[in-house]
Design a binder for these strands. Sequence first.
DNA 1: TATAGATGTAAGTGAGTACTTGCATTTTAG
DNA 2: CTAAAATGCAAGTACTCACTTACATCTATA
Lengths: 192, 192
Amino acid sequence: MTEQSTKERIILAAIDLVHERGYQGATTKAIAERAGVNEVTLFRHFGNKKGIMKAAIDTFSIPDHLLQTIDAQLRWDLEHDLPFLVRQYHEIVEQKEQVILISLKEAGTFPELDELIAHIPTMYKEKIKTYFEQMVADGKIRKEDPETLATSFIYMNFGYFFLKNRIDASKGPIQLDSFIENDIALFIRSIQ
Amino acid sequence: MTEQSTKERIILAAIDLVHERGYQGATTKAIAERAGVNEVTLFRHFGNKKGIMKAAIDTFSIPDHLLQTIDAQLRWDLEHDLPFLVRQYHEIVEQKEQVILISLKEAGTFPELDELIAHIPTMYKEKIKTYFEQMVADGKIRKEDPETLATSFIYMNFGYFFLKNRIDASKGPIQLDSFIENDIALFIRSIQ
DNA sequence: TATAGATGTAAGTGAGTACTTGCATTTTAG
DNA sequence: CTAAAATGCAAGTACTCACTTACATCTATA
C-alpha cells in the first residue's frame, strides 16, 4: 500500500485525463474528480492548470541513470546486445508512454515537454551509434556507416512502438518478443 | 488561380487550426477569421463545429487509385522499386500530413478519421508483403519471411516520417533523398 | 487536549465559447 | 435589370471553464 499524497494523485489524474482528452479537454473539475479531491485543492497546490502539468512533467522526466546502466550490460555480441537494447528502449518508452503521447498531442503547448521527449531518440541514437562504431571497428559486423545503422535501428523501433496497436491485432507482451524474433533478428542477420 | 469556394476555404482553415491547436483549441471565431469569412457563415454551411470536421475528413479521404497506380510501375528490381515505393508512400503521407497528425492528436474524437488513418499502413503493408512474396519466389532476394520484410520496411518508413524533424537538424526535401540513399540502400543491400 | 496545516463546501466572478436571430448588403444568374 | 441566394454585421443567449474568496471541518502532532 504505497500511500499516495494528494499532490501525486492529482498529477496522475491530470496525466491520465490529458492523455485521454487533451489539455483543453481535461477540465480542472474532471481532474479533481478523478483524483478524488476537491477542485480548490488543485489550485491550492499548483496555482493554476498549467502548474499541474509543469509538476507532472518534472515528475515524469527521463531518468538518465537508466541509460547509463545500459553500457555495463553490453557484451559486444550482436545477438545478445540488440535484443537487449530493444527491450531497454521499450521499457523506458512504455513507462513514459502516456507522457510521450501527450507531448505528441500537445506539441507546442509545453515546450519543456517537447524538449524532454525529443531528447530520448537523440540520446538513444548517439548511444547506438557509438556501439555500432565499435562493432565495425572490431570487425564484428559488416562495414556499414554506423550513423545509418543507428538511424535505421531507431526508425524501426519507433515505428514499431507507434504502429504496434494499429498494424496487428495481437496484443500484449508477446508482441515485443515477436518483434525481436522477427524484425530485429532480420536486422541482425543482415548486417553480420 | 483556382478559385476557392467559401466552403473550401473554411475547411482548409479548420484543418489548419485544428492541426495547430487541437479541436477544442480551434475556435469557430478563429476558423472564420482565418478563412476570411464571417463566423455565422460557418454555421450556415456546416450546422455546427463537428460538421466542419466531418466535411474536412470527407474531403481528405485517401484516394485508393493512388495505391493502384503503384502496381503498374513496379519493375521487380529492388534498387528501383524500393526507392519508388518509399517516395510513393511519403508523397501520400505528406499530402495528408496535417490530417494524419490531427488523427493522432484527436484520437477518439473522430472515429471515422481514426479508421481512415489506420487504413493506410495496413493497406500499404499488404501491398509490400505481396511484393516481397513475389521477389522471394523469383529468387531475387534472400529467402526471408515476406511478412517480416514488410513490417520492418513499414516500421522504418513510419519511424522516419515521424522522427525526421526531431532527430536531425537538416530539413527540406534533401532529407528524403538521404533517407533513401542511406537507410533504404542499407536495407536493399542487406536482403539481396 | 490544543493548535496548525491541510482539505472540504458553497457561492460567485469574469471571460470565452458555440450557436442563434434579425436585418442589411453583396453577389450571382435568368 | 431583377429576384434569389449567399454573405456580412450586430447583438444576444445559455453554458462552461479557470480561478477566487470566506468559512467550516478534519487530521496530525506536540
